[in-house]
């Protein structure tokens, strides 16, 4: 029983991997600059992604390790993101903290340079 559950997780990881790789490849092929920003990958990785054949994509996706991971390890970003949607003192849905997070995230080149 336990093994079956484990297998299900692994199958789901492979499926997410494949969707992620297909999405990333499609985006890079359509507009590389935009994809580099949205995906947070380097231009070199983007070039490799664009050239992968479908067979290669499936092969790469079929491991037990996730191909994509959290883009930010920064606690500041996560606290700003999770504040979003909380009601402010005026009873409004504040969007300032979400934009604050966007600015901090867009200024983060760690993965891109």
């Amino acid at each position: 029983m336990e093994n079956q559950i484990d297998n299900r997780w692994m199958t789901e990881i492979r499926e997410v991997n494949l969707s992620y790789l297909m999405l990333a490849q499609g985006m890079v092929r359509a507009d590389k600059a935009q994809a580099v920003f949205c995906l947070g990958v380097s231009e070199a990785v983007a070039d490799i992604l664009a050239d992968l054949s479908p067979a290669q994509l499936i092969k790469i996706a079929s491991g037990n390790m996730m191909m994509c991971r959290f883009r930010f390890d920064d606690e500041m970003v996560w606290s700003l993101l999770s504040e979003h949607g909380k009601r402010s003192s005026q009873g409004l849905d504040g969007n300032a903290s979400r934009l604050h997070a966007s600015i901090v995230m867009a200024g983060n080149f760690a993965e891109a340079v």
Binding site: K32, A33, V36, F37, S42, E43, A106, G107, F109, A112, V113
Partner: peptide
């Protein structure tokens, strides 16, 4: 965003 694009592509 602009600087991100300039630096990474």
């Amino acid at each position: 965003i602009y600087e991100y694009l300039q630096k990474s592509t």
